[in-house]
């Protein structure tokens, strides 16, 4: 292979793959959302905004708000747990740091669906938590934990916590500890150092982690299916139903595009914050 061929091969492969399997599909979903549903051909002409109007029907608006609320709650809990955790891990000697980060990845190998199923055994009426509570006499009757919003958030935090921790750790890695020492020498309290130095400098990690938790959370239909029961559906359940069961593709697509719009808005905030902090972005940003 001469220079031209190798270079051309790499470039063409990049453009064709990303164009065919990323760009075109996204455009097609956008297009589908304004087409008319059809049982046989999935989506047909003419163009219509019907599906978009249906998004605002009370029953769907309710799922939308519930998803937003549960995802926000999940993100906040992940941040509260993940932030100190990432800080501690980042400050450990290299060997420990590697081991702990490795241990964060290991659970993924048992497939998140199977792990979610195991949570049922913890939260169920005869599960671990209730057995402990009954055994110690804290309660007389098993608590209804499973099939509640609590169970859904418990499962979402469980599956998504590593996605919060990993960007935060790399953010803490980049944090210049001499800045903190200087602030301390100059008499800044822990709170002042935290608020004025640590949080602003790890902001890209906070935002990246929050996005990596918040956005997927709304789509995790299997967590809602297994732990939430019929009453605690997420956006993902609706999209899945519209595509795979009801087969109203335009309506499902409209839901997905709404999710993309939310994503775009949040990403835009992310870039603004990022630019303010280290004046770089896109692929060069290693906080992801």
């Amino acid at each position: 292979m001469n220079l031209l061929n190798f270079r051309r091969f790499a470039i063409v492969l990049t453009l064709v793959w990303l164009g065919l399997f990323v760009l075109v599909p996204h455009v097609l979903v956008l297009l589908t959302s304004v087409m008319s549903p059809d049982a046989q051909h999935l989506a047909v002409w003419p163009l219509t905004l019907n599906s978009w109007e249906r998004l605002f029907e009370p029953v769907y608006a309710e799922v939308f708000w519930r998803s937003l609320w549960l995802s926000t709650l999940t993100t906040v809990i992940c941040l509260v747990l993940g932030y100190p955790f990432a800080y501690i891990v980042a400050k450990l000697p290299n060997v420990w740091r590697g081991v702990l980060l490795f241990l964060m990845i290991v659970p993924f190998w048992t497939n998140s669906l199977i792990r979610t199923y195991a949570i049922k055994l913890i939260l169920g009426n005869k599960g671990l938590v209730n057995a402990a509570l009954l055994g110690t006499g804290v309660v007389d009757e098993p608590l209804q934990l499973l099939y509640t919003p609590f169970a859904v958030v418990f499962g979402l935090v469980y599956v998504l916590l590593p996605f919060m921790v990993l960007p935060l750790v790399s953010s803490f890695d980049k944090l210049d500890s001499t800045l903190l020492e200087a602030a301390q020498d100059l008499g800044a309290s822990f709170w002042a150092r935290f608020r004025l130095i640590i949080v602003p400098l790890t902001m890209p990690g906070i935002i990246a982690g929050s996005l990596m938790v918040f956005l997927p959370a709304m789509g995790m239909f299997y967590v809602a299916d297994l732990l939430g029961g019929a009453k605690n559906l997420l956006l993902g359940n609706i999209i899945k139903n519209q595509f795979l069961v009801v087969r109203d593709w335009p309506f499902g697509a409209a839901f997905s595009v709404a999710l993309i719009v939310i994503m775009a808005g949040l990403l835009w905030l992310y870039f603004l914050a990022n630019r303010r902090i280290n004046r770089q972005g896109g692929l060069d940003d290693e906080s992801l």
């Binding site: 990303l18 399997f21 990323v22 599909p25 697509a253 997905s256 994503m263 896109g282």
Partner: peptide, 25 residues
């Protein structure tokens, strides 16, 4: 620049959105 944006989109898109786009294509 478009190519790196597309990679970024894939990384940030929730799975459910990617799933739909793959199904449609």
């Amino acid at each position: 620049a478009t190519a790196s944006s597309l990679l970024f989109i894939v990384m940030m898109s929730p799975d459910i959105v990617l799933a739909i786009t793959f199904l449609v294509i």
